[in-house]
């Protein structure tokens, strides 16, 4: 049994596309459990995932997966990783079973083992009834589940998910969260990118915020909320619904002065900032 608290270690990781610096010296240590990477479009989230998964080269710095260097030990790293990218890698002309067997065979399983593993995964992801149907006929949620199952054929120790629930309806999204959580409970380390703050808040043990290729914050959801300034004074309308929000620095004096600036009849509530507001404050942009 391997004990480690460092699944991914990024040391001054830099990536440029032409003159554009996409990752600007990112240093980050990622432990077990579920880690979410948040940030606005173009922050470099997908590039970071692609570098970890050996799809892009580093221009500078160093990156190890469970102690193995992504450049010098590329094949070993590939054996440890599973990737579900932003765009589905499901082959629509093949059935669910055939997709999984194909991946199993490519990963070195015998025909028989590949079939058995495909059966297990189809059961696990509630796809057994659709196993023989062409994946092209699947719903969006089913395709995503099959895609995820395909990256789990060899039980990777680190699972990379690039925007795993983008485009899914709330029910399918929750079902996928459930699967990811179960994998993490079984000991798979998960790094996921997302534009949904709700997703990071609900799923991740730790959250990092990437902005213009730099890591601007890292911690638990509670730590990020606590670190990013103070409580929010929310003004409510006659139905008790929030109609406006005023941020404060969290001190009693500031909250009091904000309250005094409002009409005496206004209905208000004071609450902790949402992760959305935290990211907005850190990056100056909306996360999505």
């Amino acid at each position: 049994m391997t004990y480690t608290d460092e699944v991914l270690v990024l040391d001054d990781v830099t990536k440029r596309f032409g003159a554009h610096t996409v990752l600007d010296g990112v240093s980050w240590r990622i432990g077990p459990g579920i880690t979410a990477l948040l940030g606005p479009n173009g922050a470099g989230k997908t590039t970071l995932i692609r570098i970890v998964s050996t799809l892009e080269h580093l221009d500078g710095g160093r990156l190890t997966v469970l102690g193995h260097d992504v450049v010098r030990e590329r094949r070993t790293v590939q054996q440890l990783l599973g990737l579900t990218g932003q765009h589905t890698a499901v082959d629509g002309m093949l059935s669910g079973t055939e997709n999984l067997v194909m991946v199993g065979r490519l990963l070195g399983l015998s025909r028989l083992d590949a079939r058995r593993r495909a059966g297990e995964l189809l059961d696990q992801f509630d796809l057994a009834d659709a196993a023989r149907r062409r994946a092209g006929t699947y719903s969006g949620g089913m395709r995503r589940r099959l895609d995820l199952a395909m990256s789990l054929v060899r039980a990777p120790r680190v699972l990379l998910l690039d925007e795993p629930t983008t485009g899914l309806d709330p029910r399918s999204r929750r079902a996928l969260w459930e699967q990811v959580r179960r994998l993490a409970d079984d000991g798979t380390a998960v790094l996921l990118t997302t534009q949904y703050l709700e997703e990071a808040d609900a799923l991740a043990d730790r959250i990092a915020v990437l902005d213009s290729g730099r890591l601007v914050a890292e911690g638990t959801a509670a730590e990020l909320k606590a670190g990013a300034g103070g409580d929010v004074v929310e003004v409510l309308d006659e139905h008790g619904q929030p109609s406006g929000a005023l941020s404060t620095d969290g001190t009693a004096g500031h909250v009091a002065s904000v309250l005094r600036s409002l009409p005496g009849t206004a209905r208000v509530q004071v609450r902790r900032p949402t992760l959305d507001e935290v990211v907005l404050q850190l990056t100056g942009k909306d996360a999505a």
Binding site: M1, T2, Y3, T4, D5, V7, G31, P32, G33, L66, R154, A155, R157, D186, G187, T188, A189
Partner: peptide, 9 residues
């Protein structure tokens, strides 16, 4: 950070 066992394949 707590030390957690990362599963063998």
């Amino acid at each position: 950070m707590t030390t957690v066992a990362v599963r063998e394949p």
